[in-house]
Design a binder for these strands. Structure first.
Length: 875
RNA sequence: GCAGGUGUGCCGGAGUGGUCAAACGGGAUGGACUCAAAAUCCAUUAGCUUAGUGCUUACGCAGGUUCGAGUCCUGUCACCUGCACCA
């Protein structure tokens, strides 16, 4: 028995000793392969990680062999809630917990044989790293891109703390099953992602190497819409304590359908709108308060799952064009954060508004009519949301919607009652977290000077502290909180919010290029050489958050003149999800999780790697399957055994063809990240290898295998007498002239004919002495006939004959079928292969004789032969 | 609710307009080898069949485009994923 684990250990040690994958800037062309760095959870590496890293390692090894200077770094996104929770439970500092987890991760990653440059390791919870997070924050702060404002959070009154969405279960606190989670407004830090919204949106179309679905998701997420901002005057009721009478205030609403302006019969303000209460009359106050309270008991996430509901505020707005009074409602379906948090409602032409109007008996007014029809309010059962011709719209009647949009907007602009505007769905990024295990925000609050940036970086997390459940521990840590103001040296308090961990992961790819720089965030020259990332691989779930944040940071740092490119990565790849054998999500709670290390112990790292990428295209989900793993392990053992029996000498023409063809195909498939198809080629190659082969050809075969199974490949490579590492050798080149498809056709033909003879032998139950193979004309021209028939029905040749054959065969066949002379290049491959079959059949009579010890005769153009297939007759 | 995706033989999955009853793998059945098993190798694995590169029915369901659809379009159903404090 071969001990694969020992072989793997041997090569992992060699790679490490020789620093085989450590890189420096050189004159060579670079390739930067990056996987989304993991959160080092206490439970260690799972199969999903192994899958992600294997995909990236394969492309890294492939590019390295192809002469690229490959940067393939490794690191850990080590701040975060789970470490904090675990630390609370274990009464330890999260740092301790995190360091142990990272150590475990490193061990596991090494066992899988990834070709990382370990010297560049980055861990975001280390002050050397988060110092630069704070630095970026301050740069943003200086530019007005980091600011504070009120925002809702989930709040548990028992814990007296903010809850993450994850800690809210069915509207209750995760630790207090009977306590409703409240929505509370806190003053929090934001990054102004909206400042780059337009560039983030418009830049999507230039992301040529990104998958279409990710681009679509981002587009919808950023949600650029062109529309019109319309000013509505609202009569504000007298304030309760105030003595002033009713006043009018201007409120803006955003709409993409200004053409429906005359159909507005009410306004709806978001129930979460900060100024909502200013609009509420004393008569309506109780009702409104009751309504908002009901909403507050629901977690923010669930609000849009509620039925569309609302309540009248008591106030009326003035329609800007008709000057009519229209009621203002507070509603649960209007987003406070989109546009101005208030919408104009056109029940006749918007389904949500329609339902709302029906519910509260608000009038419906048709202003858009389908082209040859009239709409009637009474007959409507749902809103007419399509474009059409304007009616009931005074001077704009008879205009088409699109034209009317323009005209109405222009008219409003003239009247100073509105303007053309662009709106984004993208919100500013709330980065404040009321937690301990994150990057401290480097701001000091001084009573005299106000907010003062703390330039004395890094602002580090306190170390001698035991975390407790509940309140943010930083708040109670006096040493951390009480500081002197950097400006006036008076007493001041440090900001206790920490940053969202997504800030850490928004620029880590840059730090890898210069991970140990203490003086600056990175050396611009190094960045210029290594960045942007050539291949960025990770899960699809990051499409809308991480992948937007990383683009945002990139653009910001570019504007600081630190980068000379606009986008973080050239190519993006998203691997599928790994499901357990039972089809469910792999998870500890289901008890169906698979530990990669256990798998390796039972078979080999190479088998695991091979299996992970052989089942399906890596961008598809796939299910774990123990049998599949075993069969891959067997394949590896087989190669190893096969090598021992192999005679290194001369390759036959067939072997040369196979090897060169395999090089061509495997290279193409790896480049397209179609590893599953590459592996099929590799397996076919090894399975059909003849036992004598030239050294060069066999080495090529091993090289093809090496990105997938680097350990066994190195081992065989060494046994062949090579002293240098295979991992840093050169990828084989194929020779086109050695590829000869006729050899494949020959194989197939021989194989089929043998099969036929066997079958017929069985049928006649006796061994014949002579076999006559007769071929009909019809067999040869069967396909031509079909095409002719198709031509009779006015059929376009060029469309069907996409598969082009080479000139020589085209000529031959064009002699037979004059119609094709016009377009000989466009003959289908079907014809080609059958012509070859005929030739090869004749060429290989001798081979049949040897195999079967019988006489074989071939009759061409036999009128008696069956159409469709060469007939085989026995005597 | 909004957005994105997926649906193929017993199973996992290739496949993007014609060489498709469908690559490759797994399972199952039969056979070879063996005292036996494992491993390995070969065959079969939609139905019918006069045994033919034959016919019929098949790529979620219902329509459509086309000479031709697993592949394109429309509708529909089912499932999966994301939705801004998990990372």
């Amino acid at each position: 028995m071969v001990n694969f684990n020992a072989i793997e250990q041997k090569w992992q040690n060699r790679w490490e000793e020789e620093k085989a994958f450590e890189v420096k800037e050189t004159k060579k062309k670079k390739f930067y392969a990056l996987e989304m760095f993991p959160y080092p959870s206490g439970t260690g590496l799972h199969i999903g990680h192994a899958f992600n890293f294997t995909i990236t390692d394969i492309i890294s090894r492939f590019k390295r062999l192809n002469g690229f200077n490959v940067l393939y770094p490794v690191g850990y996104d080590s701040f975060g809630l789970p470490a904090e929770n675990a630390a609370i439970k274990a009464k330890k500092h999260p740092k301790e917990y995190t360091e142990a987890a990272i150590k475990n991760f490193i061990k596991q990653q090494k066992k899988l044989g990834f070709s990382y440059d370990w010297s560049r390791l980055v861990s975001t919870s280390s002050p050397d790293y988060y110092k630069w997070d704070q630095w970026i924050f301050l740069e943003m702060y200086k530019k007005g891109l980091a600011y504070k404002k009120n925002a809702p959070v989930n709040w548990c009154s028992k814990c007296n703390t903010v809850l993450a969405n994850e800690q809210v279960h069915d509207g209750k606190c995760w630790r207090h099953e009977t306590t409703d989670v409240e929505v509370k407004n806190l003053n929090q830090w934001f990054l102004k992602t909206t400042a780059y919204a337009d560039e983030l949106y418009e830049g999507i179309k230039d992301l040529k190497g990104w998958p279409e679905d990710i681009k679509k998701l981002q587009k919808n997420w950023i949600g650029k819409s062109n529309g019109t901002e319309i000013n509505f005057e609202i009569e504000t009721p007298p304030h309760k304590e105030g003595t002033i009478g009713p006043t009018t205030t201007l409120y803006n609403v955003f709409t993409t359908r200004p053409d429906t302006l005359y159909g507005v019969t009410f306004l709806v303000i978001s129930a979460q709108h900060p100024k909502l209460m200013e609009l509420v009359t004393s008569e309506q106050e109780n009702k409104v308060k009751k309504f908002t309270k009901k909403l507050n008991s629901v977690s923010a996430e669930d609000i849009d799952k509620l039925e569309k509901e609302g309540v009248f505020t008591g106030s009326y707005a003035i329609h800007p064009l008709t000057n009519k009074k229209i009621p203002v409602y507070a509603g649960n379906f209007v987003l406070a954060s989109y546009g101005s948090g208030m919408v104009m409602a056109v029940p006749a032409h918007d389904q949500r508004d329609y339902e709302f109007a029906k519910k509260y008996n608000i009038p419906i007014k048709v202003v858009i009519s389908p082209e040859n029809k009239t709409l009637n309010e009474e007959d409507m059962t749902k809103a007419y949301q399509e474009r059409g011709i304007l009616v009931n719209s005074e001077q704009f009647n008879k205009l088409h919607s699109e034209k009317a949009k323009e005209k109405i907007t222009k008219y409003l602009e003239k009247q100073k009652k509105g303007k053309k505007t662009v709106n984004f769905r993208l919100k500013d990024w709330l980065i404040s977290r009321q937690r301990f295990w994150g990057t401290p925000i480097p701001i000091i609050h001084c009573e005299k000077c106000g907010e003062v940036p703390d330039e004395n970086l890094p602002v580090t997390l306190p170390e001698n502290i035991i975390l407790k459940a509940g309140k943010n521990p930083l708040e109670t840590c006096d040493d951390f909180v009480n500081v002197k103001c950097p400006k006036c040296n008076g007493n001041a308090k440090r900001e206790t919010d920490t940053m969202d961990t997504f800030t850490n992961s928004s620029w880590y790819y840059l730090r890898y290029a210069d991970s140990t720089n203490e003086k600056q965030i990175f050396d611009k020259k190094k960045i210029k050489y290594w960045c942007p990332v050539d291949f960025y691989i990770g899960g699809r779930e990051h499409a809308c958050m991480h992948l937007i944040y990383i683009r945002f940071y990139t653009k910001f740092l570019r504007d600081l003149k630190l980068l000379n490119f606009d986008e973080p990565s050239i190519n993006q790849f998203n691997q599928g999800m790994v499901h357990a054998e039972d089809g469910r999500k792999m998870s500890k709670s289901y008890g169906n999780a698979i530990d990669p290390l256990t798998v390796i112990k039972g078979s080999s790292a190479d088998a695991l790697r091979l299996f992970l990428v052989s089942v399906a295209n890596p961008d598809k989900d796939f299910s774990w399957n123990t049998r599949g793993l075993e069969s891959n392990h067997r394949f590896i053992s087989k190669i190893y055994d096969q090598f021992n029996d192999l005679k290194i000498g001369e390759s036959s023409k067939k072997t040369e063809h196979r090897i060169n063809n395999a090089i061509k195909k495997v290279t193409k498939y790896i480049e397209e990240i179609k590893y599953n198809l590459a592996i099929i080629e590799i397996k076919n190659l090894f399975n059909t290898l003849e036992n004598e082969i030239s050294k060069k050809d066999y080495e090529s075969a091993i090289k093809l295998l090496s990105p997938f199974c680097p350990h066994i490949a190195e081992e065989i490579w060494e046994k062949m007498g090579n002293k240098e590492l295979l991992s840093t050798n050169v990828w084989p080149k194929y020779e086109e002239n050695k590829i000869n498809i006729e050899l494949d056709a020959e194989d197939e033909l021989i194989f089929n004919t043998i099969k036929d003879i066997q079958n017929i032998s069985k049928f006649i139950k006796s061994k014949p002495k002579k076999v006559i193979i007769s071929v009909s004309e019809e067999w040869k021209y069967k396909t031509i006939k079909r095409i002719k028939k198709e031509m009779e029905t006015d059929f376009e040749i060029s469309r069907i004959m996409k598969k082009v054959m080479d000139k020589d065969h085209a000529k031959e066949i064009s002699k037979l079928v004059p119609q094709f002379i016009k377009n000989p290049k466009k003959l289908p491959e079907i014809l080609l292969s059958q012509e070859i079959e005929l030739k090869v059949l004749q060429k290989n009579i001798s081979e049949f004789k040897d195999k079967f010890d019988l006489e074989i005769e071939i009759k061409s153009n036999d009128p008696k032969a069956m159409p469709g297939k060469p007939a085989i007759l026995f005597e």
